[in-house]
Design a protein around this nucleic acid. Structure first.
Lengths: 207, 207, 207, 207
DNA sequence: TATGAATGAGGCTTCATTCAT
DNA sequence: TATGAATGAAGCCTCATTCAT
């Protein structure tokens, strides 16, 4: 499908992907302009559609490209032997920070893409998200020592609550960052506060 | 600012507001079409811009109009004497359900508007949301009997977590509903499951 | 449907219809350019789509507009009392010539539109053509004195053959005209030759 | 002119010609896409323009190629000794059927090409058609026994009428076939009905 | 107050053809 | 001979907003 594109001069590939991610991240799918993308990538208008059937395919390609790259990076560093649930959460949080610092634009794009609500891509995105969750939730929490939890707590519900909590936490942090444009995000304090939430959950739900 | 509009024939006012809410709810700010709005409201194109400087003003007016109307309704029914935090949460949840059933379209619009990410309105929306939270969080939880909580728990954090939890819960429920179009939302089961989460928090954080 | 357009300043209406007919006649539906049409009509791009949902609707409107106008003109002059089949054919032929001289561009457009094969309009056109035939064939040949034909001839087949003959005759004449652009069509000789064919059929099939 | 192409690997030649004929037959000259042609032929885009200066040359080459091939086939089977005009017509009709069954796609392409109205090719096509008629009408009807016709009939006119009749007959049959896609054309009944028209002409114009 | 005609930039996409390799 | 990347003009259509009436 995208073989053509992947055979292309890598420099140009990068320019196109970066330009697309930047535009999509800034404006969302519907309002992103392919005109802006080709201008930023410094290619001719037609070329974009030589490689990608349409705007939608470009978006999804960028999404897949980015998420694969980032997941690979993540799992290379991920230690799946840690039995403590909250230690593992902290690890995940730390790895996320590292990746974010290594690929800031791509990270930003994926984060925004993840919540893009455009009808045109939302169905496909939803599938991908579900696949991601299905194939990763298992890996992330395999081998956890459940005996450390208080007896009788509904662990599924806890995980669900924590996921929503961190989603909300991320979103709010993102919003605050947007409100002070120009000021770079202070990721350390961002993750420090996340750690405080983890600590809170641990106190609440561990023996 | 909108004095002109508010002097208008009430029937026409309603038609315009409803049409705007419907279109914005369906497509988000950027992709909503003023053409569709005037068609639905059965008014002339120019009239819309006679009353509202631009699309943005219309959106924000609709937002303010809806949230004020709904908040008034809410506080008329709200019992601020209940000292039990979770009982109050249940009350809030129940009132939300009532309002939702009374003003389904307006409710839907506000819900969607709340997460609209269009640059053009997001700043203004953010202000309004912050104001709403600031001025309401106090009212909602004033007079709560904190002694019922376990000693030493950080109540602010708990509230934050619960807010994110219910945000996430709503969003997921909304998504599921979208995936089966045609099937009407079963609000009773929706709120029953919400109640289960409330119960869980109670067990976790009350003495 | 097209009420909006018909309320428009008649001069502009005419300019738009003429420009559309000219462009469609020259290039057929698919290759006609809405850009050329608006340029010729001296209106803004958007205006065309203010009146017509899309290129297709514009084409069909022009077709309906033209054929109605021409049919009305035709039937005002048509004498349905003539019992001789071939006399009536001559009459039809003569009226066609008159109309052609009165509305040359419209006539040309309709002739070309009639054989336009673009997928986008052919279905709708086919319906219209069938309706035209159904509702007109009856009128055109009602009250014909069949006893003038040789005994035993299959009159339906004769009519069919004559229709194809005149279709072919028209088409060939049109082609020849195209091959010598600039030179105006000599309609008199065109219809004189048609009369010769009518005479031939008469000799062949009348007693 | 096309020497280069004719030296090419025959398999590839065939693929290119077939792909071109298919695309032109489906969409007409203007709307045919060279992209589709190279995709179908499984050759590189540039190669097409290496062999053919442009789309127009490709089309005309395909037309010439097809018509020559089919004419050769036709004349190998054609019996020019039959003196009866209508018997010869029946023969022509039968041979046409045979060829159609042997080269369905090519036949279809030529049929459609024949009525293609694109400015870009119509002039050249017109020349070819005229040449075809000029050089073939003689062959087809040489040695006909004119004494079998009624005295005084204008045989040129008769032939002209019959040609238009069969053109119209073909076109109508083609249309009907298009209106019921999926249902294969019943060529036998198609040619049987054609035979009925031949019979009709015979009765009308023979002694 | 009310109309709806008018604007023209910008949206995405397709196209035949060229050219460096 | 063969590739397929590259071009950029042109395609149709939508849009928020303005303005004369």
């Amino acid at each position: 499908m995208f073989a053509k594109f992947l055979n292309l001069n890598p420099d140009k590939q990068t320019r196109i992907i970066n330009a697309a991610m930047k535009e999509f991240a800034q404006k969302g799918f519907d309002n992103a302009s392919t005109n802006e993308i080709v201008k930023e990538a410094e290619i001719a208008k037609g070329l974009l559609f030589h490689y990608f059937k349409n705007k939608q395919q470009l978006f999804l390609f960028a999404y897949d490209y980015g998420s694969e790259l980032i997941l690979n990076d993540f799992y290379q560093k991920f230690d799946a032997t840690e039995p403590d649930f909250f230690a593992r959460l902290r690890q995940i949080s730390r790895l996320k920070l590292e990746i974010l610092q290594q690929f800031p634009d791509m990270f930003h794009f994926l984060e925004v893409a993840y919540i893009d609500t455009s009808k045109v891509v939302s169905d496909e995105l939803e599938q991908r998200k579900q696949q991601l969750i299905d194939s990763n939730l298992g890996k992330l929490f395999k081998g956890i020592d459940l005996s450390l939890f208080k007896d009788g707590v509904d662990i599924t519900r806890i995980i669900q609550i924590m996921m929503w909590t961190f989603e909300g936490y991320n979103r709010d942090a993102l919003k605050k960052a947007k409100l002070t444009p120009g000021v770079p995000i202070n990721y350390e304090s961002f993750f420090a506060e996340a750690a405080a939430y983890i600590e809170f959950f641990k106190t609440s739900f561990y023996k």
